[in-house]
Design a protein around this nucleic acid. Structure first.
Lengths: 344, 344
DNA sequence: CGGATTGTTTTTAACGTTCAAAATGCTGTG
DNA sequence: CACAGCATTTTGAACGTTAAAAACAATCCG
């Protein structure tokens, strides 16, 4: 494996000149640059990143803690997210280093260790919890990080974040169902403990109010994100609607999994999603396009999220430029319309 | 951030002694060791990995190329796999570095680059294709790697691998259906181009022959791994069975997704999976336990796979010990029985 | 008691890069 | 022609660690 020294000898210049050819080519006389470049190519020289990092104390690696999920639950778009994050990191010459850690504050020693040993420059957090302690901790330790997801119910965010406007996403879903003629639109949610859930729920409620649609008894909290729970909640909604003579004709689900449950319950009752009842999901997971009728779903702009995460983490500290907007980015999701809400 | 030098000064020993305290504690006098250890803790010293790597030229990082999937397809167990891989790597003090690369031979320069710049020591490959060119290439370049998945249709494997005995998995599934009284067991497969598919298909066919069950016209190749395709194939099987007066009563699917299609078609026809027809999937993805009836599925031993991958990659070159079995490991999957094959 | 043996600690020199400062060469100016 | 000013290149030192060899200390044996 060629080293700077060997390239220098080959090109008959000093070691530093070769280094400059790579890191500050404008400093070299065009002629020298050409000669050095040729030697680099000839010897197939690749700079040793460890030596570089030792000198500059920057490793160009970003830590990401691979979430471990409660049994039966999976992040259906995690592979998309990781791919996007990698790609975004690579665009800046960086890479993603995976690690595992206990959840919550118990995991912080691991983060600290990775940073102290100089395995990573900083972290991308995801799976932000309502009172996530990690952000404050990292900030206190002055360890660089950026979060995918806001820290809910805190007055101030303890660091830079990128998030998706879940309220807006659900609002769009409600409006879409309204435009396709639905007038009694229910919401399948998660337990109250999740800030994420409250955000999306609020989007549904506000928009229904705006459109003068009913909301009473139309929001159901499923204890877990499972198909069965979605089906059960849907059954409850349909039954109550029939009894009262005001049938539900739209269902906005907080996740694709719950929406799938709704689809299943509809099918079981001989109803067709997209005809009698419009259904939307959230995340546009791979499942959405694979079921039938295919599921209308709110898609998070994953590539954009990844790009912004990397930018916030690696760009020079907080350009107070109001145009790019400091260190907080709220991105708008997009509704992908398929058969479950509008047949044909 | 404390360095060896500072710790050495604090403990009043030489730098090398501190280094030894960490890397070869048996060489120190117990008394010295105690003193040094105390200083290390007091100063909260963490060795700088870059400096270490520079000196030893081992980075303790393993590269893994995050697969980018054709639209609509996802590896439903990828997050489980990554988690297991991380954990296994961490047990040996290593970590996983993610990267992206073009598929096939076009991606090799990326692998070469990462290795040459000393960002990684070696690679874990997955998504092995039938004539995967990567293995041979890496071997030629003497870049360490290990593969999850065999290279099919080659006389010799160009490197160490771990794989799951798909034929055995399907055989188990067939036997299980047989034991629950099924006598006409079909197989939902993928296109012929996949070695993986042929392996699993062979397991089904052989076992049916052994049990003297019919196989003619009972294997269907779905062009894509999608729920719809599984449903369509199932419909075809059920129709043909009815016509001939010999109804299909068992379905072994090569993936959970296809099995889900089978479940859907059964439901659509008013049949109950696990009662009239037994259905099994492959991979035990999160979906399997979340549908209803829950899906019986062949589970790959993911943790074991990850452990063996890391072991093969990092252990001293090929212990020719026949007990642990050289550099090729074929692991046995396990059938997870749920309602889709045996109600109640 | 001398010398070999073993156990413990220190010294010296690298690993491959970049930073900061110094040196060199060149151009133009008075 | 002396010299300031600039562009280009080289020198020397450092980043934090470990390998190898050397030094030192303690123990054993005849």
């Amino acid at each position: 494996m060629a080293t700077l020294k060997q390239v220098a000898a080959h090109a008959d210049v000093s070691v530093q000149t070769v280094s400059n050819a790579l890191n500050a080519p404008h400093r070299l006389k065009p002629d020298t640059l050409r000669r050095v470049t040729r030697s680099i190519e000839l010897l197939n020289y690749k700079p040793n990143r460890n030596a570089r990092s030792l000198r500059t104390s920057a490793v160009e690696l970003i830590g990401y803690c691979v979430p471990s999920w409660p049994h039966g639950q999976t992040h259906l778009v995690m592979d998309q997210f990781l791919h996007a994050l990698c790609t975004a990191a690579e665009r800046t010459g960086r890479h993603i280093l995976l690690f595992t850690a206990p959840t919550g504050i118990d995991g912080m020693p691991v983060y600290d260790d990775l940073h102290a040993r100089r395995l990573v420059d900083g972290f991308v957090l995801s799976q932000t919890e309502t009172h996530d302690p990690r952000h404050g901790w990292l900030k206190e330790q002055r360890i660089p990080f950026v979060s995918f997801g806001r820290v809910w119910k805190e007055t101030t965010q303890p660091g830079p974040y990128v998030d998706v406007d879940g309220a807006a996403g659900c609002a769009t879903a409600v409006r879409h169902l309204y435009e396709t003629g639905r007038r009694r639109i229910a919401f399948l949610s998660w337990p109250r403990t999740s800030g994420l859930a409250e955000d999306r729920l609020a989007g549904w409620r506000t928009t229904c109010k705006e459109l003068e649609l009913p909301t009473k008894d139309l929001a159901i909290r499923c204890p877990e994100d499972m198909i069965d729970e979605g089906a059960r909640a849907t059954a409850k909604l349909l039954d109550a609607g029939l009894e009262a003579g005001t049938p539900v004709d739209g269902i906005v689900a907080i996740s694709d999994i719950l929406a799938l449950g709704a689809l299943r319950e509809l099918t079981a009752r001989g109803l067709t999603a997209g005809v009698e009842v419009g259904v939307t999901g959230f995340d546009d997971s791979p499942l959405a396009s694979v079921v039938s009728p295919a599921l209308t779903s709110v898609r998070q702009p994953i590539d954009r999220i990844a790009t912004e995460l990397i930018a916030l983490l690696t760009d020079s500290p907080a350009p107070a430029d109001p145009a790019t907007g400091g260190t907080e980015r709220l991105l708008q999701p997009e509704l992908v319309i398929r058969g479950s809400s509008a047949p044909g």
